[in-house]
Simulated assay, not measured.
Amino acid sequence: MVRAGLTAERVTLAGAELADEVGLDQVTMSQVARRLGVKDASLYTHVRGLEDLRGRIALLAADEKTLRIAEATAGLSGKGALLAFADAWRAYAHEHPGRYMSTQISIRIDPELAAKASGPRRAVELTYNMLRGYGLAEPDLTDAVRLLRSTFHGFVALEAAGGFGHARSPQDSWVRSLDALHTLLEHWPPSREGDPS
Score class of each variant (00 low, 15 high):
residue 59 L to Q: 05
residue 69 I to E: 11
residue 132 R to F: 11
residue 99 R to H: 06
residue 156 V to N: 02
residue 39 K to H: 09
residue 110 D to V: 13
residue 91 A to P: 00
residue 47 V to L: 02
residue 125 E to H: 08
residue 193 E to L: 00
residue 91 A to H: 01
residue 167 A to M: 06
residue 38 V to I: 11
residue 18 L to W: 09
residue 188 W to E: 02
residue 114 A to Y: 04
residue 132 R to C: 11
residue 68 R to H: 14
residue 54 R to Q: 13
residue 147 L to F: 02
residue 127 T to I: 10
residue 172 D to T: 15
residue 61 A to Q: 02
residue 112 E to C: 09
residue 110 D to K: 09
residue 81 A to H: 01
residue 194 G to E: 01
residue 191 S to C: 01
residue 182 H to A: 09
residue 13 L to K: 11
residue 119 G to Q: 04
residue 83 L to S: 00
residue 86 A to E: 00
residue 89 W to E: 00
residue 19 A to Q: 05
residue 145 V to Q: 07
residue 2 V to W: 13
residue 18 L to P: 08
residue 45 T to Q: 10
residue 21 E to I: 14
residue 47 V to I: 04
residue 20 D to V: 10
residue 89 W to H: 06
residue 194 G to N: 01
residue 64 E to W: 08
residue 146 R to C: 03
residue 53 L to E: 09
residue 169 S to W: 10
residue 139 P to Y: 00
residue 8 A to I: 11
residue 69 I to F: 14
residue 131 L to Y: 03
residue 143 D to W: 03
residue 140 D to Q: 11
residue 71 E to W: 15
residue 164 F to H: 01
residue 73 T to I: 15
residue 173 S to I: 15
residue 76 L to M: 13
residue 10 R to D: 10
residue 169 S to P: 08
residue 17 E to Y: 05
residue 78 G to Y: 04
residue 77 S to F: 11
residue 131 L to S: 01
residue 149 R to I: 15
residue 61 A to M: 03
residue 187 H to D: 07
residue 103 T to K: 02
residue 93 A to M: 05
residue 55 G to K: 10
residue 38 V to C: 08
residue 84 A to D: 00
residue 136 L to W: 02
residue 177 S to H: 06
residue 118 S to C: 05
residue 140 D to T: 04
residue 90 R to D: 00
residue 103 T to V: 06
residue 78 G to E: 04
residue 11 V to G: 13
residue 155 F to P: 01
residue 62 A to E: 06
residue 23 G to K: 07
residue 136 L to S: 10
residue 85 F to C: 00
residue 25 D to M: 12
residue 46 H to A: 12
residue 115 A to E: 11
residue 186 E to F: 05
residue 177 S to F: 09
residue 160 A to H: 06
residue 159 E to F: 03
residue 37 G to P: 05
residue 157 A to P: 00
residue 9 E to P: 10
residue 149 R to S: 14
residue 52 D to V: 06
residue 31 Q to I: 14
residue 48 R to D: 13
residue 170 P to K: 05
residue 7 T to Y: 06
residue 126 L to Y: 07
residue 24 L to E: 04
residue 87 D to P: 00
residue 105 I to Q: 01
residue 163 G to C: 03
residue 28 T to P: 05
residue 162 G to F: 03
residue 155 F to G: 00
residue 6 L to T: 15
residue 89 W to A: 01
residue 146 R to Q: 11
residue 28 T to H: 06
residue 18 L to Y: 12
residue 133 G to T: 14
residue 150 S to I: 03
residue 132 R to W: 13
residue 107 I to C: 03
residue 176 R to T: 15
residue 85 F to A: 00
residue 61 A to V: 07
residue 154 G to D: 05
residue 60 L to I: 12
residue 33 A to D: 07
residue 125 E to Q: 09
residue 113 L to F: 11
residue 186 E to H: 06
residue 44 Y to W: 12
residue 173 S to C: 13
residue 62 A to T: 08
residue 46 H to R: 14
residue 124 V to M: 06
residue 158 L to E: 08
residue 180 A to H: 12
residue 45 T to H: 12
residue 27 V to Y: 02
residue 116 K to N: 08
residue 142 T to D: 03
residue 179 D to C: 07
